[in-house]
Design a protein around this nucleic acid. Structure first.
Length: 140
DNA sequence: GCCAACGTTGGC
DNA sequence: GCCAACGTTGGC
């Protein structure tokens, strides 16, 4: 079971909109980077990821679940990229800010810290557990 | 609003 | 196939 992190600018697609999309979720389109594509292709239904607000907010605000595996992104005219579907699972009790993540020595290797421009990132099990704890969430 | 980092494009 | 130029992203 792998963990992920999805980055979105709230002005483009916010956590509130993801929550409003409900159980049926939405497609996560717009990825145009090969490393991000590789991550999308590796995702299995049922795996979870953090929902991160970039630019404005700069914090992990919620958890989403992958509900449909990789399929072609109809908004990509080149046909090279695809997407998955995700649904909102739970909101962080406390948003975990980028500052808080950077201040945590155990998270210094997070992709978010080292390659902040990558829009879909892998998260290790340890990082997942720690960020959840920082967000006031119990369990896995 | 600036700028560094990075990916992509296109000329050779 | 190399590499310089350019565009985009996202933190500051």
């Amino acid at each position: 079971m792998a963990y992920w992190l999805f980055k979105s600018e709230p002005a483009t697609w916010s956590w509130d909109q993801q929550v409003a999309a409900g159980e049926t979720g939405t497609f996560w389109n717009g990825v145009r980077n090969h490393l991000a594509k590789k991550n999308l292709m590796a995702m299995q239904v049922g795996e979870r990821g953090f929902f991160y607000h970039s630019n404005e907010g700069k914090a992990v605000v919620g958890v989403v679940e992958v509900i449909r595996p990789y399929y072609p992104d109809h908004t990509d005219e080149t046909g090279r990229f695809g997407m998955v579907d995700v649904r909102a699972v739970e909101a962080m009790r406390i948003p975990v800010s980028l500052d808080a993540i950077k201040a945590e020595a155990a998270l210094k290797d997070m992709v978010l810290v080292n390659n902040s421009r990558l829009s879909v990132q892998p998260v290790s099990a340890d990082e997942w557990a720690l960020v959840r704890a920082m967000g006031g969430m119990s369990g896995a």
